[in-house]
Computed example of a mutant assay.
Amino acid sequence: MPIPKINLSRRTLLMATAAAVPLVSAPLYRARAAGLEGVELQRYQPLFFSAAEWRFVMAACDRLIPAEGKGPGALETNVPVFIDQQLHAGLGADVYMQGPHKNDAASTLGFQHDHTPQQMYRLGIKLAEQYSQQVHKKSFEQLAPAERDALLAALEKNSVDFAALGEPSLKASQFFGQLLDDTKNGYLADPMYGGNKDMKAWVAIGFPGARAAFTEWVDVHDVKYPLGPVSLSGKRA
């Protein structure tokens, strides 16, 4: 029996992500600086990342959720701000860090690393940049979009050998997985955490946000929900 070809749009994939998996793999921390729900990305001063690390994260997020097709991209929704705020506030402080850890463990078994998220970002960015310099003779943010995509795919597939670059304690796929999860979380989380600026991601996928009640819609079927999303702070998109 032939397998039907399935064409999934980014909207469909993000809706599936929002519905099928938790928005966070660890507790979220509210953005510490005031006014981050509407901060301009270019004016934001990172609290955790160095200038070079920040350029990498900006360039990577731009390719993980690009501003192409339907819906906003990661940079339009301040995803890098979310990641920086979470790492600065202590993301991973509540995970169990002692071994033994299993590299092939099921996702239901939780965090399986002896590196904190902060350590994974520091090491992962350093090694990814080192690889980019070896292969392309330039830094990651200077690569063409297709080259960035190829390098990110190589990280995901462990085609970039971190051990050969001098760091056997961390796999490229582990770093990529942390980056991808945090990017999705920042795209879909409430704006109070620094990402999902103006609830643009929620608008794109038709998510109503933190509205208090939906009782009048419980028995309504096959009708598009007409009201825009509301954030936890009470702001309306």
Rank of each mutant, 00 (worst) to 15 (best):
A213W: 01
A150H: 10
M15N: 03
R10C: 00
A26D: 14
L180M: 10
V21K: 05
M15H: 03
H88S: 14
L8N: 11
C61A: 15
L91N: 05
G177S: 15
Q112Y: 03
G35L: 07
L75A: 06
Y121D: 03
A146I: 06
V218G: 00
R11P: 00
Y225S: 09
D198Q: 15
H88L: 06
R10N: 08
K157T: 14
A144W: 05
G73R: 02
L143A: 11
L28K: 07
D190F: 02
G124V: 07
G186L: 06
W202C: 05
P72L: 11
L227Y: 11
A128I: 12
G110L: 04
A172I: 04
N103S: 13
M192L: 15
T183Q: 04
L13D: 01
G35K: 01
I125N: 00
Q98S: 13
S231C: 08
P66H: 05
M58C: 10
V39M: 12
G73D: 03
Q45D: 08
K184S: 00
A89Q: 12
E76P: 00
G234T: 07
R122D: 09
R43I: 00
A106K: 14
A16N: 10
G90I: 02
L227N: 11
Q130G: 10
E40Y: 07
R43F: 04
N185S: 15
F214R: 09
L227W: 05
D104E: 12
Y44A: 05
P117T: 09
A212L: 12
H115I: 01
G177L: 08
P145R: 13
K126V: 00
K235D: 13
D84K: 04
F49H: 06
S107V: 14
K102W: 12
Y131T: 02
D222T: 05
M58G: 02
V160T: 04
F56A: 09
L165K: 06
R211Y: 06
K197C: 02
G99H: 12
P2E: 11
A33M: 06
A163W: 01
A67C: 08
S173M: 03
A26G: 13
V135P: 02
A150T: 10
F140G: 01
L91W: 06
K70D: 15
V220Y: 01
F214V: 08
A16M: 13
N185T: 15
P229E: 02
H88R: 14
Y225K: 09
V24D: 08
P80Y: 05
F214S: 10
W54P: 00
Y96D: 15
G206T: 12
D114V: 04
K184H: 13
A150W: 05
F48P: 03
R236E: 14
R236Q: 14
V135M: 10
E141R: 10
Q119Y: 02
Q118H: 03
G228H: 04
H136Y: 15
S159P: 00
F176T: 00
L47R: 13
F162I: 03
V21A: 12
S132G: 08
L127Y: 09
I83F: 02
L109V: 07
Q85S: 15
Q85D: 11
L14A: 01
V223A: 06
V95K: 04
V218Q: 14
Q134E: 15
P168T: 04
F82D: 01
Y121A: 07
A59G: 09
Y225I: 07
L91H: 04
A34E: 15
I125H: 03
F82I: 08
K171L: 13
A51Y: 00
S169E: 11
